[in-house]
């Protein structure tokens, strides 16, 4: 179905997440790259040897979660915007999720916006806890949202209503 709709199955998504124990230790990258394409900037960008593609640039990136610091540099370098950072270390009831967001208006810290799943459905409201847009991110801002724990595996996007 994925190749017909662009919506990855639950199993595909789960296969990309590290263990909940790892997520609860601190921020870690989840790379939703499911199909081989000639591309390796995530590996080039990672300074911690946490992303491995190797000689053949068509290989799907493998994340070594133990090496990942959750620095989020790879988020801004992925041309497919396929990477997010999840962090379950801050609270027992919520998770922090960093996503690339290339739309205007950018949300502001403290805003509540719509949280969307991989089909674009509004599944919950999320709080914006960080917005980063330095020059080095090259116009791919990173937004950190705080969402209820049960949305960890479903939340993938936000929608900001223009005021």
């Amino acid at each position: 179905m994925f190749e017909k709709t662009g919506i990855p199955s639950k199993e595909m998504v789960m296969g990309k997440f590290p263990s909940i124990e790892r997520i609860n230790k601190g921020p870690v990258a989840v790379i939703e790259c499911y199909k081989e394409i000639p591309c390796n900037p995530c590996e080039t960008a990672c300074k911690f040897d946490a992303i491995n593609i190797g000689e053949d640039i068509n290989t799907i990136p493998a994340v070594t979660s133990d090496n990942c610091t959750g620095c989020a540099i790879c988020l801004t370098k992925c041309p497919g915007l396929a990477i997010m950072i999840v962090d379950g270390s801050k609270s027992e009831t919520t998770v922090l999720i960093k996503i690339p967001y290339e739309f205007l208006p950018l949300p502001k810290v403290g805003d509540t916006v719509m949280g969307l799943d991989r089909e674009g459905r509004h599944i919950t409201d999320v709080k914006i806890v960080g917005v980063l847009n330095p020059k080095s991110f090259d116009r791919t801002p990173i937004v950190t949202v705080e969402a209820g724990r049960k949305y960890l595996y479903d939340l993938r996007n936000i929608k900001v209503e223009a005021k």
Partner: peptide, 10 residues
């Protein structure tokens, strides 16, 4: 498919 997913989730 990364492009497709990016649009689908909107």
């Amino acid at each position: 498919l990364v492009h497709a997913s990016k649009i689908r989730r909107m």
